[in-house]
Write a protein that binds this DNA or RNA. Structure first.
Lengths: 102, 102
DNA sequence: CAGTTATATAACCTACCTGGCATGTTGTCC
DNA sequence: GGACAACATGCCAGGTAGGTTATATAACTG
């Protein structure tokens, strides 16, 4: 489910990390520069994202390259699906009207 | 932006409220029964959702009827859009491959 | 092996979040 | 106007989250 995913993505800093990683995968040091934040803070956020499955890491030399994983975003997309009828076309609204007024 | 929206929706209880309101709008007492939680707790969550624009309320007699608002969900949908290329078709993957290997 | 680089973890502190109970507020009915 | 019904709000306790500094770990480098 999108449970932990939303918790992970609710944090502004973590969203900035995702925005950065969306452009291209990169190591922690790059993120530290991009976010202008301390390295431990970035590592902690990456841990949360990693445990939520939002990012994955692979070792390259002494670096750890982080990359976005599609899964959680797909789950979020799926979770959002039933809510899309809130703004879908008038045909849906008519249908719901008929449902509630038999 | 989807900033406050994600914070509001990150809470499991608030997601349950949204799931309930997605079926139909209702007053606080119904939510209290549905969620099996104290009325003040529900009211507080509703406050968060209301201030995030996720729900709106209108007074009916001494009740307050809460309803889902489409806006934040639309914003979330829009925020998610650039991330959809993570799992889109192989054409995109080829494109990204060519971008990174000129 | 010693030193450096790159990152993770530990310990700690502050602040906020969420739940409970008690109480305030607003509208309705007699 | 008094009593009641439906919510909102204030206050307090417990837990957790996010930041810092200091330290541990792992992999190159000479």
């Amino acid at each position: 489910m999108a449970l932990d995913t939303l918790t992970a993505l609710a944090e502004p800093t973590r969203r900035r990390i995702c925005d950065t990683l969306r452009v291209r995968e990169c190591g922690v040091a790059e993120l530290v520069v991009a976010l202008r934040m301390s390295q431990p803070a970035v590592s902690k956020h990456l841990r949360v994202l990693r445990e939520a499955g939002v990012v994955s890491s692979r070792p390259v030399a002494q670096q750890r390259i982080y990359r976005l994983e599609p899964g959680p975003f797909q789950e979020l997309d799926a979770w959002l699906r039933p809510y899309r009828e809130l703004w879908s076309d008038s045909l849906d609204k008519l249908e719901r009207h008929l449902d509630s007024n038999p």
